[in-house]
């Protein structure tokens, strides 16, 4: 103990001070915007417009949530967001793992060619307009499946899973083959269960990307409100807020007109932000050990 004390020089003390202050500063800067938004979402909309809401609501209300969640458009958009996220995650993870397995078989004669076809897509990009016309030509505009189909298997995910499969003991697969198991059986019964950590990582990446996506809705499905997603609805509110001035007066006049409860664009944005953020904030900490590992795997590439 005494020996350790001796190492606590003045330099160490300053270093510790710098380290802990910076980290605390980072934590505050990261969390404040979220906590502030949370407070605004639970605060009376008109009261928020007066300013001065920081970390806790001043005039607590559930009205913002009530009025948003009872709007059928928001309710429907939540349904579409959940549906696309669930379907994409299931299809993507399974398909990517299956292709990754075939491309990890050293004896597969088309392995090099197929791998090349995938890797090349990381470096070339058809661009916005040709892709738009392709989707149109395939009938994927005004179509739910444009959320799921195009990104089914992507090169990055494929490489991450394949790298993982390559690291599995070959003897397990050999033994199953000696027992007469076919390739598909080996994949489903042996490889898939062993891949759980990397599949959790990929599933998280795919789920987050789908949950967060708004550009595909904007580009392909914006004319059909039945196919709108939560992120796109939030984006629309943000865009109107960008161009709207005098929202305060508007809200105040509405209040003066006799309605007891009012909702302002700021309150709508805050409430929707909380609604789309909470699912992510709840899920990702539990998958942390997987994605930290998965990311370092992805960095290795080939």
């Amino acid at each position: 103990m005494k020996k350790r004390r001796k190492h606590w020089t003045k330099g160490d003390l300053i270093l510790n001070l710098v380290v802990y202050t910076t980290l605390i500063f980072l934590v505050i800067v990261t969390l404040y915007p979220f906590l502030n938004t949370l407070a605004v979402s639970f605060n009376d909309a008109l009261d928020s417009a007066k300013g001065g809401i920081y970390l806790q609501p001043r005039k607590f209300t559930l009205y913002n949530y009530q009025s948003l969640l009872t709007r059928s458009q928001i309710f429907h958009a939540s349904f579409i967001s959940v549906l696309r996220t669930v379907l994409s995650t299931l299809f993507c993870t399974f398909s990517t793992a299956m292709v990754a397995y075939t491309l990890s078989r050293k004896e597969f004669v088309l392995r090099k060619l197929f791998s090349f076809i995938y890797v090349l897509t990381m470096y070339i990009d058809g661009g916005l307009i040709p892709t738009y016309f392709l989707m149109k030509g395939l009938g994927l505009t005004n179509n739910f499946w444009v959320y799921v189909l195009p990104g089914l298997v992507t090169a990055f995910n494929l490489i991450v899973i394949r790298t993982y499969i390559n690291g599995l003991p070959e003897s397990l697969i050999e033994a199953a083959r000696a027992d007469g198991a076919g390739e598909f059986t080996i994949f489903v019964k042996i490889v898939l269960p062993l891949c759980k950590p990397v599949l959790a990582t990929i599933a998280l990446f795919v789920a987050v990307a789908n949950w967060n996506s708004w550009f595909d809705t904007f580009l392909y499905n914006s004319s059909n409100p039945k196919l709108s997603t939560l992120q796109y609805e939030l984006m629309k509110v943000l865009q109107t807020a960008n161009s709207m001035t005098g929202s305060l007066e508007q809200a105040l006049s509405q209040a003066a007109a006799g309605t007891v409860n009012t909702i302002t664009p700021r309150a709508i944005r805050a409430t929707m932000t909380v609604i789309v953020t909470v699912p992510i904030a709840v899920v990702y900490p539990f998958l942390q050990k997987y994605f930290v590992h998965g990311l370092t795997l992805g960095g290795i590439k080939e």
Partner: peptide, 15 residues
């Protein structure tokens, strides 16, 4: 510190 990475730019732009 990982939290902001997982939110969409729509949310981040709002914040």
């Amino acid at each position: 510190s990982y939290l902001p990475h997982f939110i969409s730019w729509v949310v981040a732009a709002n914040l």
